[in-house]
Design a protein around this nucleic acid. Sequence first.
DNA 1: TTGTAGGCGTTATCAG
DNA 2: CTGATAACGCCTACAA
Lengths: 341, 341
Amino acid sequence: MATIKDVAREANVSVATVSRVFNSSGPVSEETRVRIQEVAARLCYSPHGVARSLITSRTNTLGVLLPDLYGEFFSEVIRGMDQTAQRSGYHLLVSSSHDAKPEIEAALRAMRGRVDGLIAMSPHLDAPALVANVPATLPVVLLNCHVSGDGYDALTIENQSGAYQMIQHLIGLGHRSIAIIRGAAGNYDAEERLRGYRAALRDAGIDPRPEWELPGDFTETAGFRAVTHLLALGERPTAVFAANDAMAIGALSALRDADVRVPDHIAVVGFDDIPLARYMNPPLSSVHVAIAELGTRAVETVLHAIVRKNEHTRRHQRLETRLVIRQSCGARLPSERPPPT
Amino acid sequence: MATIKDVAREANVSVATVSRVFNSSGPVSEETRVRIQEVAARLCYSPHGVARSLITSRTNTLGVLLPDLYGEFFSEVIRGMDQTAQRSGYHLLVSSSHDAKPEIEAALRAMRGRVDGLIAMSPHLDAPALVANVPATLPVVLLNCHVSGDGYDALTIENQSGAYQMIQHLIGLGHRSIAIIRGAAGNYDAEERLRGYRAALRDAGIDPRPEWELPGDFTETAGFRAVTHLLALGERPTAVFAANDAMAIGALSALRDADVRVPDHIAVVGFDDIPLARYMNPPLSSVHVAIAELGTRAVETVLHAIVRKNEHTRRHQRLETRLVIRQSCGARLPSERPPPT
DNA sequence: TTGTAGGCGTTATCAG
DNA sequence: CTGATAACGCCTACAA
């Protein structure tokens, strides 16, 4: 590969001048500028990112640490991040599928010196682990994590109120026996959604039934199994709240196999409102989360911390949710159709 | 951040010795080794990746260029890539959502000097664009692209035979009027799947019906619209082949809305066999593609080209597909259940 | 407007 | 076993 020196030699100038034209960082006569650009084009020269990073100590790269996320949630959040990062000339260094703590810490260390900022979404991540494994000066945004204090920027979904509203909606439809398929153990979102579920029941004066709090892990299979288990129980709830849409889809599938009709015999609702939700049979009622927006906001926040370092104040942002009522919960509403555009 | 110099000074050794213990690249007495490690731990030192890259000219990073992919296909392919890359100590620099050619070329250039290899999945990418924008020495793997000659490693799905087999299966079930919902215009996979569809009809002596080759773009919405359009036509096919599962799901949704029963009134099949396919109502027959495996193979190939540079020979690999028959196509088979594990 | 030279943090090549 | 020292490719004062 051609280096800045090659270009300088060919164009009969110094490397400094070449650097100037590539960074617009100083006066260069029009004549030499075009000559240098021609030579550069001919030699297929473009600045070596790594070398540039070393001297400027900016990598134009954001680290993204993700857990073992499946399906549309993953792709949507990455899409949001990438689009926003690209607009500001940043790249994404992605490291995913981390579920064990030592693994995460290793990934964290491996990113050292390679990124200007970090977005970490990991249920197993806490402040001490961060302090020990990332330089204190590196801007970090915690995504859907437990946040302790305000040592870091944090961005979470309004899980609890979302779940609360959904359960409240079911109660409003007359349901009093409502099961939940819980998210992965130890997961922050899972815990908050469970909290919202419990609070809504309590506030409606409905006694909690531990046997109706079914374990899950956010996969379709878990939803399928939970419902299979549920149907084997003596008494059956009239509604099921899955802590995410993937599990709700698994639940729908199990109910269909058992010839239990939705929503006639049992109502099913989910959380996240992934794009597919509206195409389910029946269309799935869910708690809408702007997933791509979550990625966008995370990147915006970390970029702000990087670019406007001094005027940046750390804070905890929460992403609003809203109920999307379709047919799976039995509410009689004007049916929803895909967007006309 | 502490540098190698700081450690050297604190430990009363030269930087060379510190470098040796961190790279196990030379003899160091046990005594000084532990001393250096202690100092390094105390100072929270870890080698600066960028600086290391500059001298070793290895970044331990793979560039991944993706189009505007949606849903599970995207997440699965990234998962496969990341897992494989991690195992070999490589990172993934991801750049996605590229649909316009100039955009792709810019992304390509921006990766220069930042990656040891490149995996590019882009319908709009061709050999000249690559030659002009990436150093000739950079190992490149083309994913699901048109391949011209053997200038690059390439990895594609057996689209045509997969589609052929699926149509053949439908014909075997007695269908003779089969529509297709096509993939995005100009997309390589889309074209090949269409080719397989046409070939299967032709070989069965069935005349092609241009009005049953519906346009699509791989989204659920496109599948929904295509079916809506189809139902408005005078004559109606007895089976619909969607060029991917997302469109098949949209199709199912539209049929349900129109009270057309699947598979009784019309058969529906997809392509890709995304994890969700088996949870559809009815469970979706599809052409199975090992999506994560696609990512894995791509990374393995590019790593081979990097690590075993001299003994690497470029080639075109094709990923096998296989038919997964569930209920949406009306074949009477033992019903499939989610895996017991 | 242009050139010179120092240094970013490492590793690699020599000597000792 | 250990230590100087020269790269790696680039940016940036400072000098001309």
